[in-house]
Design a protein around this nucleic acid. Structure first.
Length: 931
RNA sequence: GGGCUAUUAGCUCAGUUGGUUAGAGCGCUUCCUUGACAUGGAAGAGGUCAGUGGUUCGAAUCCACUAUAGCCCACCA
């Protein structure tokens, strides 16, 4: 990094300095002055490597159940297969800021980490590695395969957990959980049994989304719809009794069916028209001939059919389309399943097509329809096709037996909890989306035809022929319990374990995640953790899992614990690439948080992401944005070095004596910053907090007070104050930038070895007693702010008149503020003035001037001015002011404004008007001078 | 089709119940390096707050419509 400077041709001065430095002369002098040099450059990697293990080993992230209101948060568990991405970085930075802040406030705090076993995702990963060995999971068998997955988990599953530490997360690793660990599994089984006993879990023949590649059912949310350029095949179905129907002939009487999925034709068991459709009313009740099969199927009338779309006639395939399935149910139609689980056609599809892949079969059937004269024409059609969210295979609708949870009874109290305000969404608007989904909730298909996951605790009796008796199902917490139940039910005491077969399927991953806020705390055991830390305070997550996860946790929490699992649901945006698209590895537009940490430091990543992220919308990021945090870290380090260099061995002692205005000002600024930060964080305004603390540290402390302190009348006191203020600032910053603040706090000796800033009090501002003792007030704060304005005005004058910084100038200030006279020395310094004199507020000195709230600042130039340019500038400024004065006068002349607006606003307007009138008067005089 | 959000400086975004002459960071222009920091400092240019209408003494802010962009849900046989 530092090498780059010489590349850019900059830094000549530094070279000179370094040469000097290296002669040893300075080094010698320095060694006399300094006792403990801070390194010139902040070594973020060293600090991270030092402090994270220190915190973790010393239990800094860990509290035991105790007194008072705890602050508990559970992390949204990332997939165990996952690697850290920017979404995690954002999500966890927000949580860590909140958690560190609350902890410093003295709250008993728990941030519980863990990972999700991620059924399909993990199984796919392991199956891929098997594939490289030329094996399938079936070759290993269930037991051996699961053994492989566990091995994989032990070996690679810790990746993300390690990566989270790089971010600086203050998660309580002693309480780390896994959705498939013993405790969570116990909770899953208990919940399944209880819901079954309550009649809320049932097994049903349903049309489900089926991924032929993964070989499992998918929940509705696991299907991603994507635009597809497809076709619409227009097919003639001859009407029975029309005397036609011989292949190769055009049919006089037929119905024209338009379909996007001709391969499902052998599964058709009806065609449907809209009951209000007069064009086809005469057909209802008649039969048509299903092409290629010769089978006769009825024409039914159903509201589902859209008269406007296609031909207004739909082929009904109950086993292969969710809508057709419902139509079939309404009309008592036969369900013909023509496909195997792997997407190939079965014997019901017809002899010719057996074993064909579904898309091959589509081609074959289209060809046969054409050959048979059934195909009328083909149109292009853009539609949406569902894809598996995991492997991206086109999803098939398939009829099968699956387990479901009845959601309506669970959803109602979860809706009520948000309606009543017991649980709040932040920002509030997300509650609308939550209601919208919850009020239209569908039953949840929870069975998955996988091996990696919680196996469904349902047991069936084995039949004599070795099959299973689906009717005799026993849901139990263990095989032993199921056996007892079976014995009791059948009256057959001779039943043995071998007579029972456990359901082959496993549960949806979310069936364990929805218990996360309490299963991780020990439920169903009545643990101290559960009693103390449940319900959690805040849940922080992105919008994309409100339905998958948040809504379901609400339902489970209320149902099983009797209380919602959290009080606030904080929803943040999604991190997007610079062009606004979603980050994805395949597009190559993603940023790797670990790379950013390596390049800029964890603190830089955290601070930058907090600064650029608003809860309200998505965030576009690019690498450059992280320079903000990196630069800020450097600034903090350098300011700390400055303070350290100026700290004598014996310290500064108490802040005593009459404080100067600038000293009061920084103390007030600190007080304001402390109060503001707490208010901001109470309202989850992470971004505002970052801005506020950045502004306080950089603008107030570094740009202003440090410059003052360099030449303060009482240096010792000025630095004593700086030292106090600096430590408060470090603590305000700590939740955002944990590493640099810890390192600096130790370097500056605020903390002894073995202590941590993590556990120091979050500054709340100065007490009234302190403020009174030091003479702090808003007035003195404002006074210095105005003084700064005056200095800025003078600097602007210097720039305008091209007075080099090295030139000492004569300044006169026309001001009515009596306190100004006490500031001569600091004004001289800041203005680089030879003399600073005061004149009465209304005096007219006719020199280049700027009017500020402090007074009019005059710069004596002794004739070195480009008159023409200045004259032009003044004319422009006068025009601008005239406009403002006109509108101001109109405003104040308006009785309605004076009557209705708050007094302070009116007063402010008057003041501004007067001020600008004075400015105009000054400018007019100046204009004459330059004319 | 149903719902939600956004549109403010060249770029990325703040702007908390309507109330100073609309702000920040980056970028740009000019100037400044011998002592905390050039990953810095000082000064500056740059905006009809998407458009139209309405409510109000007063609108970036509230309402309606329009345009554009994006997201979610459902459906597309």
């Amino acid at each position: 990094m530092w090498k780059n400077r010489s590349d850019s041709g900059e830094g000549k001065g530094r070279y000179r300095f370094d040469l000097w430095y290296n002669t040893g002369i300075i080094k010698f002098a320095d060694s006399l002055l300094k006792k403990k040099d801070m390194d010139k450059h902040y070594d973020a990697k060293a600090a991270e490597a030092k402090w994270y293990p220190f915190w973790e080993k010393n239990g800094c992230f860990h509290d035991e159940p105790g007194e008072g209101t705890p602050y508990s948060v559970v992390i949204p568990p990332p997939n165990v297969t996952g690697i850290l991405h920017m979404g995690h970085a954002l999500n966890q930075t927000i949580q860590d800021i909140l958690v560190r802040w609350r902890r410093m406030q003295g709250r008993n705090t728990l941030w519980l980490p863990g990972t999700d076993h991620a059924g399909i995702a993990t199984q796919n990963v392991v199956e891929k590695t098997l594939k490289k060995e030329g094996k399938r999971r079936q070759d290993l068998g269930r037991e051996a395969f699961l053994e492989r997955v566990w091995q994989w988990k032990e070996q690679y599953g810790g990746t993300i957990v390690h990566q989270q530490r790089m971010l600086g997360n203050s998660t309580d690793w002693a309480r780390e959980r896994f959705t498939f660990d013993e405790g969570c599994s116990k909770a899953v089984v208990k919940v399944f049994k209880r819901l079954f006993d309550e009649g809320l879990v049932y097994k049903g023949n349903y049309i489900v989304n089926w991924c032929p590649r993964c070989g499992t059912a998918l929940a509705n949310d696991e299907v991603e719809h994507e635009p597809n350029h497809g076709h619409f095949w227009y097919v003639r179905y001859p009407v029975v009794g029309s005397g036609k129907g011989v292949a190769g002939e055009p049919y006089a009487d037929y119905v024209m069916v338009a379909t996007t999925r001709p391969e499902t034709l052998p599964g058709d068991t009806a065609v449907a028209v809209n009951p209000k459709d007069e064009r086809y009313a005469h057909l209802v009740g008649k039969n048509v001939i299903l092409p290629l099969t010769g089978r006769e199927i009825p024409v039914v009338a159903d509201d589902y059919v859209d008269r406007e779309f296609g031909t207004g006639i739909v082929k009904i395939t109950p086993a292969h389309d969710p809508n057709d399935f419902l139509v079939g149910k309404r009309h008592g139609l036969e369900e013909i399943n023509i496909m195997n689980g792997d997407g190939t056609m079965n014997e019901l599809a017809g002899e010719k097509y057996v074993g064909m892949d579904r898309f091959k079969c589509r081609e074959a059937i289209v060809a046969d329809l054409e050959a048979g004269g059934y195909l009328d024409h083909i149109e292009d059609l853009d539609n949406q096709v569902g894809h598996c969210y995991r492997c991206h295979e086109v999803v098939e609708s398939r009829l099968s037996k699956q387990w479901f949870v009845k959601m309506k009874p669970l959803a109602e109290p979860a809706i009520a909890a948000v309606k009543s305000g017991e649980v709040k969404f932040v920002p509030e608007r997300w509650s609308k989306i939550y209601f919208n989904w919850m009020e239209n909730i569908q039953d949840w298909c929870i069975s998955r035809q996988l091996w990696w996951g919680h196996r469904i605790p349902a047991y069936y009796l084995r039949t004599a022929d070795g099959g299973i008796d689906e009717e005799s199902v026993f849901v139990a917490e263990s095989a032993e319990e199921a056996l007892e139940m079976a014995k009791a039910k059948t009256g057959n005491a001779a039943l043995a374990a071998a007579d029972l077969v456990q359901d082959e399927d496993v549960l949806d991953t979310w069936f364990s995640s929805w218990l996360w806020p309490f299963s991780t705390l020990g439920w169903p055991e009545k643990t101290k953790d559960l009693e103390y830390y449940y319900p959690t305070a805040d849940l922080v997550t992105a919008q994309d899992i409100i339905f998958f996860w948040v809504a379901r946790m609400m339902m489970a929490g209320i149902h099983f614990m009797g209380r919602p699992p959290f009080r606030n649901i904080v929803i943040h945006g999604i991190v997007r690439a610079a062009d606004g698209s979603k980050m994805s590895k395949s597009k190559g537009n993603s940023l790797d948080p670990l790379e950013l940490i390596d390049m800029y430091s964890a603190d830089a990543l955290r601070f930058s992401i907090a600064l650029i992220t608003s809860l309200d919308c998505d965030t576009k990021v690019n690498k450059e944005k992280f320079e903000i945090g990196r630069n800020f870290t450097t600034k903090i380090w350098n300011a700390a070095r400055f303070l350290e260099m100026n700290t004598p061995a014996e310290g500064f002692g108490e802040i005593a004596g009459e404080l100067t205005a600038d000293e009061k000002h920084i103390l007030m600024a600190t007080d304001k910053a402390c109060r503001r930060m707490s208010e901001i964080l109470e309202n989850y305004r992470i971004q505002d907090g970052a801005l506020a603390v950045y502004d306080f540290f950089w603008r107030q402390i570094c740009d202003w007070y440090v410059e003052y302190a360099k030449d303060a009348p009482d240096r010792n006191r000025a630095f004593a104050i700086l030292r106090d203020v600096f430590y408060k600032a470090l603590r305000l910053l700590h939740p955002y930038m944990p590493f640099v603040t810890e390192e600096v706090a130790h370097q500056l000796g605020y903390l002894k070895d073995g202590e941590t800033i993590m556990r120091q009090e979050y500054p709340a501002g100065y007490s009234e007693a302190e403020k009174a003792a030091w003479g702090l007030s808003d007035e003195v704060y404002d006074f210095v702010e105005r003084k700064r304005e005056a200095i800025t005005a003078l600097r602007a004058l210097r720039a305008e008149y091209k007075v080099p910084p090295a030139t000492f100038v004569k300044v006169t200030i026309a001001t009515g503020d009596e306190r100004a006279s006490g500031e001569v020395e600091s004004l001289k310094k800041a203005m680089r003035a030879e003399t600073v004199e005061f004149a009465s507020a209304d005096s007219d000195l006719a020199m280049p001037s700027k009017l500020t709230a402090f007074g009019t600042v005059y710069l004596s130039l002794e004739g070195l001015v480009d008159k023409a340019a200045e004259s032009k500038r003044i004319a422009g400024e006068l025009a601008k002011l005239a406009g403002f004065i006109r509108s101001s006068e109109a405003k104040l002349a308006n009785k309605a404004f004076v009557d209705h607006a708050p007094a302070a606003i009116v007063e402010e307007a008057r003041r501004k008007l007067e001020e600008n009138r004075a400015k105009v008067a000054q400018l007019e005089k100046l204009a004459k001078l330059f004319a």
